[in-house]
Design a binder for these strands. Structure first.
Length: 1016
RNA sequence: GCUGAAGUGGUGGAAUUGGUAGACACGUUGGACUUAAAAUCCAAUGUCCAUUAGGACGUACGGGUUCAAGUCCCGUCUUCAGUACCA
C-alpha cells in the first residue's frame, strides 16, 4: 500500500463535495462558530502560493472547531467587481462579466484542489445582480437616513423632515455639512421641493458634494494618490490636475466617535487598532477665532481666521499664525507689497506633493502675507504667515503658532527671526521648544499664570467663550468617504435625476443592472463609461430602464411638463461597497436570499464573524468601512450587531525568492535594465562572478558601520579576514584583477525563473538556455544563483503556482508546508526546495499505518512511551491551534511520528486519535487512513482527542547543572528529591568536583524540577 | 519626522511565566544500498581553538538588573510596513 496522494486527494475532495460534508446549518444544538476569510478578487493570473496562506490557516481552525463540537460556518466567495477586469475589457473589448466568470472558474478549481472545507453552497459574488441588488438597497437606506447627535445614531430622514416642518432646523442636533443656513418651520414650508431636497442632502448619510479629485484628462479618469508620480500619471506619464467633481460621499465622519470606542470591544491586534485610531485621529482642544486687522488698502470688512488647537493653554505664547498656502483667505488678506512673493510661494507649493511636503522636515519655508490678526486677549497684532508645513486638508488649514511649545513653530520662528515668547515657568527654551504637557506651570499669560496645562486649558476655553472667540472642540481627522467611481465594472447607483436632484429608485424595482456599452472607456466629453450606454434612463411610469433618447432635453422641461423619463446616474460604486456587508449574506442559505439580504433568523443565529483572517493592507479601508456600515445597519434595525468582526488576525505575505545570475559580456546586447548601476549590487555581482561557489559579502550593516565610523575591533577583523581570503588564492587574485577592470555596464544581472534553480542554488543552464538562448555565448555566467526575497510577481520570474506543488507533492504537503514556513502573521519567503521535508513526513506518517503488506495497525497494547508521545502531542497541538501558532504544531507532528516510528508503535489506540489531530492540517491523508481503520463516517465528525495529564507525569528529571550560569553537564535525578537532597547529590558528583577544582561554592541555587546553578 | 512590527546558524524558523539557545526542517559533508541515478536509510553539522579530554565565544550593537537574560530595563543601529509635519 503506497501513499498515492493524487488518488487519495481526488477521492476525498469528491467525497466531501458529494456528501456536502461541510455544509453549515442555520439551526443546531451545537454552539455556532463563524470563521471567515477576506474574499479574493479573482484576477486573471490565478492563485500563487501566497494566496492560500490565510485560507489554510482558517481552514485548519474551522476543521478544529468542528472536531471540538461547533456548528461551523466557513464560506467563501468573490469580490468580483474591480479595475483589472475593466482594464482587460478596455484592451480586448471582452465584457468584464465574461472574463470575471472565467477567472472565478480558475480560482474555484485551484481552491478545490487544496481541499478547503468551505461551504460553497453559500458562495457570494459582489458582481451578481442578485447580490448587488442589496448593495443598492443599503445605499438607498443610507440616503434615507440622517445622523442624530443627541441619540448618537442614524434615524430615518422622515423624522428629520417632521422636525423641519414643525420647528425648522434651529434646535436640531444632527450631523451635517458645514454651510447650513438656519431656517424656521415657516421658512421650510415655504421652500420649493428642490430647495428642500438641497437642504436634506446636507443631512443625509450619503450625499452629493463637490470633491477635489486628481483628474487625468488624457486617461479621462480620476487617479488615486499613489497612481500619481511627480505630478504625472504613473501609467503613461500624463499630466494630472486638481478638479472639482460632484460625487457621492458617505458621511462616515458622523460615526467617528463610535468607530473609535468600538475598538475597545473587539479582539484585534493592537497594531491594527492603532492604525484605525490614527486614521480616525481624535484630538481634543479648542477652536479659536482670530480677527484679521484690516489695513487701509485691504478690501472691505475684517476677515476671521478659525484655527483648531489642542493647546489652548498656550494661547499667550502665540507670536504668529500660519495658514496653509491653499487657504481661502490667503488671497484676500495678502497685502499688495507681499502679493508677488506669496503667489510665487503658492505656485511652488502646488507642485510639491503632500508626501514631498511631509518627508522633507529639514527645509523650512514660508512667506509673510503682510497682514496681522488681533490676539483675542492681548489685542496685540499677530503677523500672519503662510507655510507648507500646514496642510489644508487637516482641521481648518490654519494654525496659531506657539513657538515655545511646538518644535515646528519654533523652527519656523527661528528661521524667520520671529520672537519666541516664553510662557513656561522656569523652562529653558533657548535651544528647543518645550513640547511636554506635564510638570510645567504657565507664566506671562495674564489670567492663566501659575496654572498647569489642564487647568489653563479649561480656563482659556472659558474665557474664549466669554469673548465669543472660541469654544472647546473635538476634532477628527476622519473625512467623509468619496463613494463615486468613474468606472464601468461596479454597482450602478439606483439613482436618477429630476431637475438635477437625485431620486432613489424604489427598492422593489431593484436590481438596477449594468447597461451594455460598446466600449469601456470614458466618453469623449469626459463622462464615465456609463455615459456610452444608449439604454440608460429611468421611466417612472413603467419603472423600467429605457432609451436615453426618451429623456426630455433639460431646457425644454420643467417638472410639470416632463414625461417622467429621467437620466440615470453615470458613476458606479467603489470596490468597498460590496465588501462592506458581504459577511451577512453568507449567513443566509441561497434558497432564502430573494426577499432579504439575509433573514432575521439567520442574522440572529450567526450574529457576527467570530474569526476573520486577512491581510493588513485593509486596515483602514475595508475594515473601517465595514464597521461603519454595520453600525449604520444596526441603528436602522437591519442587523443586531454593532461590530462585524469579533476577532481578527492578519496573515503575513509570502514573498518570492527570486534568482539572479550574473553575466559578463562587454559587447552583448542586453536589456539596459539588467545593468547594475547601484554600487553595492555591482560589487555583489563581481563577488559572485569571482567565486561562484561561495560568496562572502560584507554585510550592509558592516558597511554602514564603516561609513559612520562606529566599527569596533571585531568588525575590522571581519573586514581583514575578507581581504585575506580574497587575496590568498592566486586564481581569485587573477580573477580579481580582471574584475577590477570590469565596468559596471559589462556586468548584467539576469533574472532566472525559479524553477530552473535547485535547492543548492545551482542554475540548470540546459533548461535555461532552452527557455532563453540569449546568453549562450556569455563570457562568464555565475553558475550559482544570487537569491533575493521580493514580492511574487510575473516580471521577477519568482511566482510559484500551487497547481504545480499539488501535482508534485499533493495538497496535504502544500498545506503543511505553508504553515511550516513560519508564524502566520509574519512576512516570509517561499522556497519550494524545503517542501521535501513535510512531504517525507507524510510518507513516514503513512508508513506508520501501512506497508507493502497492507495495514499495520492492530489492537496491540499501548506502551507508556507511546501514550506519552500521543498526549504530549494532543496538548501541544491544541495549545498551538488556540494560539494560531500553526507552524509549531507541524514540528510537533514530525516529532510525534519520529518517536512512534522509533517505538514501532502499531496500536490503534494511539494511531487512531493521532489522525484526528492531524486532520485539520492534512485532511486527505487523515480521511484515507481513518477509513482504512474501518470508520464509515468522515473524520471531520470525530471528536478531538482528550488530553490526559497522567500520561505525562515523570518520576525523574535530567537536571542541567550550571556553574556561574553556564550549563556544564546534566544529571538524572528523581523528581521527588528535596532541595537539599538535590544539592547533596550534585555536590557528590565527580564532575562537579572537576568543575570546582577545589574551590568552595559561594552559593548553590536549586530550583526543583528545573535547574541547579553553582556559584563560585 | 511620527506610528507599528521585526533583527537568533549557510536558510526557514523553535525556545508559551527569566532556568540546558539553535527544537523541527531545508541545505551541506561523509557513509550504506545501487552497474548508475533517483528514492530510502544512518551519521555529522553555530563559530573558533584543541589529537582527545575539553575550552573560549555566541541571539543586531553598547550598557545594566539577576545566582541565571534571546526573554526584563536604559541607550544606539538596521530592516520592513503604514503615514497625517495633526497644530
Amino acid at each position: 500500500m503506497q501513499y498515492d496522494f493524487n488518488q487519495i486527494e481526488k477521492k476525498w475532495q469528491d467525497y466531501w463535495a458529494k456528501n456536502q460534508t461541510f455544509k453549515a446549518v442555520n439551526n443546531s444544538d451545537k454552539p455556532k462558530y463563524y470563521i471567515l476569510d477576506m474574499f479574493p478578487y479573482p484576477s486573471g493570473a490565478g492563485l500563487h502560493v501566497g494566496h492560500p496562506l490565510g485560507y489554510i490557516a482558517s481552514d485548519i481552525y474551522a476543521r478544529y472547531k468542528r472536531h471540538k463540537g461547533f456548528n461551523v460556518l466557513h464560506p467563501q466567495g468573490y469580490d468580483s467587481f474591480g479595475l483589472p477586469a475593466e482594464q482587460y475589457a478596455i484592451q480586448t473589448g471582452q465584457h468584464p462579466a465574461v472574463t470575471t466568470e472565467e477567472n472565478i472558474k480558475t480560482y474555484r478549481r485551484q481552491l478545490d484542489q487544496i481541499g478547503f472545507s468551505f461551504d460553497w453552497s453559500r458562495e457570494v459574488r459582489t458582481s451578481d445582480p442578485q447580490y448587488y441588488k442589496w448593495t443598492q438597497w443599503i445605499f438607498i437606506q443610507l440616503f434615507e437616513s440622517y445622523f442624530c447627535k443627541d441619540s448618537n445614531m442614524a434615524k430615518p430622514i422622515s423624522e428629520l423632515i417632521a422636525v423641519f416642518e414643525a420647528e425648522g432646523n434651529l434646535k436640531i442636533n444632527a450631523e451635517c455639512d458645514d454651510n447650513i443656513e438656519p431656517f424656521t418651520a415657516e421658512n421650510w414650508n415655504s421652500y420649493s421641493s428642490k430647495q428642500q431636497q438641497e437642504i436634506l442632502l446636507k443631512y443625509r448619510l450619503t450625499y452629493l458634494a463637490e470633491t477635489e479629485v486628481n483628474w487625468c484628462p488624457a486617461l479621462g479618469t480620476v487617479l488615486a494618490n499613489d497612481e500619481i508620480v511627480n505630478g504625472v500619471s504613473e501609467r503613461g506619464g500624463h499630466p494630472v490636475v486638481r478638479k472639482k467633481m460632484t460625487q457621492w460621499s458617505m458621511r462616515i465622519s458622523a460615526y467617528a466617535e463610535r468607530l473609535l470606542q468600538g475598538l475597545d470591544t473587539i479582539d484585534w491586534t493592537d497594531s491594527l487598532k492603532e492604525s484605525q485610531r490614527n486614521w480616525i485621529g481624535k484630538s481634543v482642544g479648542a477652536s479659536v477665532i482670530f480677527n484679521v486687522i484690516p489695513t487701509e488698502r485691504s478690501d472691505e470688512k475684517s476677515h476671521k481666521i478659525d484655527v483648531f488647537t489642542t493647546r489652548p493653554d498656550t494661547i499667550f505664547g502665540v507670536s504668529f499664525m500660519t495658514l496653509a498656502p491653499e487657504h481661502d483667505l490667503v488671497s484676500k488678506i495678502t497685502t499688495p507689497e507681499q502679493k508677488a512673493e506669496v503667489e510665487a510661494y503658492i505656485e511652488k507649493t502646488a507642485k510639491r506633493s503632500e508626501r514631498d511636503r511631509m518627508a522633507d522636515v529639514k527645509t523650512i519655508s514660508g512667506v509673510f502675507t503682510g497682514s496681522y490678526a488681533e490676539h483675542p486677549f492681548t489685542k496685540e497684532p499677530v503677523p500672519i504667515w503662510i507655510g507648507d508645513y500646514v496642510l489644508a486638508s487637516y482641521g481648518t488649514g490654519a494654525v496659531m503658532s506657539v513657538p515655545c511649545g511646538d518644535q515646528r513653530d519654533y523652527d519656523f520662528a527661528k528661521h524667520f527671526n520671529i520672537p519666541i515668547p516664553n510662557i513656561f515657568e522656569g523652562v529653558d527654551i533657548s535651544e528647543e521648544a518645550y513640547g511636554s504637557k506635564e510638570n510645567v506651570k504657565i507664566t506671562n499669560s495674564d489670567f492663566l499664570n501659575g496654572m498647569n496645562m489642564k487647568k489653563a486649558t479649561k480656563r482659556a476655553i472659558y474665557e474664549l467663550e466669554q469673548l465669543g472667540q472660541g469654544e472647546g472642540k473635538t476634532n477628527y481627522r476622519l473625512r467623509d468617504a468619496v463613494f463615486s467611481r468613474q468606472r464601468y465594472w461596479g454597482e450602478p447607483f439606483p439613482v436618477y435625476y429630476v431637475n438635477g436632484m437625485p431620486q432613489m429608485i424604489d427598492a422593489k424595482h431593484l436590481p438596477l443592472t449594468l447597461p451594455e456599452v460598446e466600449k469601456y472607456l470614458p466618453t469623449e466629453e469626459g463622462e464615465p463609461p456609463l455615459g456610452r450606454a444608449d439604454v440608460w434612463a429611468w421611466d417612472t411610469n413603467t419603472n423600467q430602464v429605457v432609451s436615453n433618447e426618451l429623456v426630455f432635453p433639460t431646457e425644454l422641461s420643467d417638472e410639470e411638463s416632463h414625461n417622467g423619463i429621467y437620466p440615470l446616474e453615470l458613476n458606479t460604486m467603489p470596490g468597498w461597497a460590496g465588501s462592506s456587508w458581504y459577511f451577512f449574506r453568507y449567513m443566509e442559505e441561497k434558497a432564502n436570499r430573494d426577499d432579504a439580504f439575509a433573514t432575521e433568523d439567520a442574522l440572529k443565529y450567526w450574529e457576527n464573524v467570530d474569526l476573520y483572517i486577512g491581510g493588513s493592507e485593509h486596515a483602514t479601508g475595508h475594515l473601517l468601512y465595514s464597521r461603519f456600515w454595520v453600525k449604520f445597519m444596526k441603528d436602522r434595525g437591519f442587523v443586531n450587531v454593532e461590530e462585524p468582526f469579533k476577532k481578527l488576525i492578519n496573515q503575513g505575505m509570502i514573498l518570492g525568492t527570486s534568482a539572479y545570475a550574473y553575466v559578463l559580456k562587454r559587447s552583448a546586447e542586453m536589456p539596459e535594465s539588467y545593468i547594475q548601476k547601484d554600487f553595492d549590487k555591482f560589487q555583489r555581482a563581481k563577488e559572485f562572478l569571482g567565486d561562484c561557489v561561495k560568496s562572502f559579502i560584507i554585510s550592509k550593516e558592516l558597511k554602514n558601520k564603516i561609513i559612520h565610523g562606529t566599527a569596533n575591533q571585531k568588525d575590522l577583523v571581519e573586514i581583514l579576514k575578507f581581504d585575506n581570503w580574497f587575496n590568498s588564492q592566486t586564481k581569485q587574485k587573477e580573477l580579481k584583477i580582471y574584475l577590477e577592470e570590469v565596468k559596471a555596464e559589462d556586468i548584467r544581472r539576469i533574472p532566472i525563473p525559479v524553477e530552473f534553480v535547485n535547492s543548492s542554488n545551482e542554475i540548470d543552464f540546459n533548461s535555461y538556455h532552452k527557455w532563453n538562448p540569449e546568453y549562450n555565448s556569455a563570457e562568464i555566467l555565475s553558475s550559482i544563483a544570487d537569491r533575493e526575497v521580493e514580492k511574487m510577481s510575473k516580471s521577477k520570474y519568482n511566482v510559484v503556482n500551487p497547481d504545480d506543488i499539488v501535482a508534485d507533492y499533493g495538497a496535504d504537503s502544500l498545506r503543511l508546508y505553508e504553515m511550516f514556513l513560519g508564524p502566520l502573521e509574519q512576512y516570509k519567503p517561499w522556497n519550494t526546495a524545503g517542501i521535501t521535508g513535510v512531504h517525507s513526513f507524510l510518507k513516514k506518517l503513512w508508513k506508520l499505518y501501512a506497508d507493502d503488506n497492507g495495514l499495520k495497525v492492530n489492537d496491540a497494547e499501548t506502551t507508556k512511551d507511546s501514550l506519552k508521545t500521543l498526549h504530549k502531542t494532543i496538548k501541544k497541538v491544541e495549545e498551538d491551534i488556540e494560539n494560531f501558532s500553526f507552524n509549531t504544531s507541524v514540528s510537533t507532528f514530525m516529532i510525534a511520528v519520529n518517536e512512534l516510528t522509533a517505538q514501532k508503535c502499531t496500536s490503534k489506540e494511539i494511531l487512531e486519535p493521532l489522525l484526528v489531530l492531524i486532520s485539520p492540517y492534512a485532511p486527505h491523508i487523515a480521511e484515507e487512513l481513518w477509513s482504512q481503520l474501518g470508520n464509515a463516517e468522515s473524520i471531520s465528525t470525530a471528536p478531538f482527542p482528550k488530553f490526559e495529564e497522567k500520561y505525562l507525569v515523570e518520576s525523574s528529571k535530567e537536571y542541567p547543572i550550571s556553574f556561574n550560569g553556564k550549563m556544564r553537564f546534566t544529571m538524572e535525578l528523581p523528581l521527588d528529591l528535596s532541595k537539599d537532597e538535590i544539592e547533596a547529590a550534585v555536590m557528590a558528583n565527580e564532575k562537579t568536583q572537576n568543575q570546582l577544582q577545589g574551590r568552595t561554592p559561594k552559593k548553590v541555587i536549586v530550583v526543583p524540577g528545573k535547574i541547579v546553578n553553582i556559584v563560585g
